[in-house]
Amino acid sequence: MALLRGAGLSLRRWVGRAGVRLEKDFGDPAVTRVREAAEAGVRDGLAARPESADRAGMLGTVSEVAGVEEWIHRAIAAEPDSALPLLVAGARYVAWGWEARTGARAQQVSRAQFEVFHERLRRAETFLYEAAEREPDWVTPWQVLLTSGRGLEVGPVIAQRRFEAAVRRDPFHLRSHQQHLQQVCRKWGGSHEAMHAFARASMLKAPEGSLLGQLVALAHIEHWLDLDGEACARYMRGFDVVGSLREAADRSVLHADFEQGYGRVQVCNSFAMAFALAGDKEYARRCFDATGGVVSEFPWYYINGGNPVGAYRNYRSSVGA
Rank of each mutant, 00 (worst) to 15 (best):
G305Y: 08
A231M: 05
L212K: 06
Q183L: 11
H73V: 15
L218I: 15
K281V: 10
A2W: 06
A91E: 15
E115K: 10
E297N: 13
L245T: 10
E64W: 12
G263N: 00
S82C: 04
R21H: 14
V15T: 12
G293T: 07
G213A: 14
R313A: 15
E115H: 08
V62L: 10
E133F: 01
S252N: 08
S296A: 15
L212V: 12
H73F: 11
V319M: 07
P80H: 07
L245H: 06
S270D: 01
E99G: 13
A311Y: 10
L11P: 01
M273V: 04
R43K: 06
T291H: 06
R74H: 14
R168W: 00
M58F: 11
R111T: 12
A37M: 06
G103M: 12
E130M: 07
S252I: 04
T140D: 09
S252R: 05
S148V: 01
S317I: 14
R162I: 05
R286K: 10
L146R: 01
H220E: 13
Q266T: 02
G209V: 14
C232W: 03
L87Y: 12
E23G: 09
Q214T: 15
V241P: 10
K24E: 15
F239I: 15
L215A: 09
D289P: 04
G243V: 02
G263K: 07
D54Q: 14
M58T: 15
S270L: 03
V116E: 13
L174S: 01
A284C: 02
D137W: 00
C268W: 05
L174Y: 09
V216G: 01
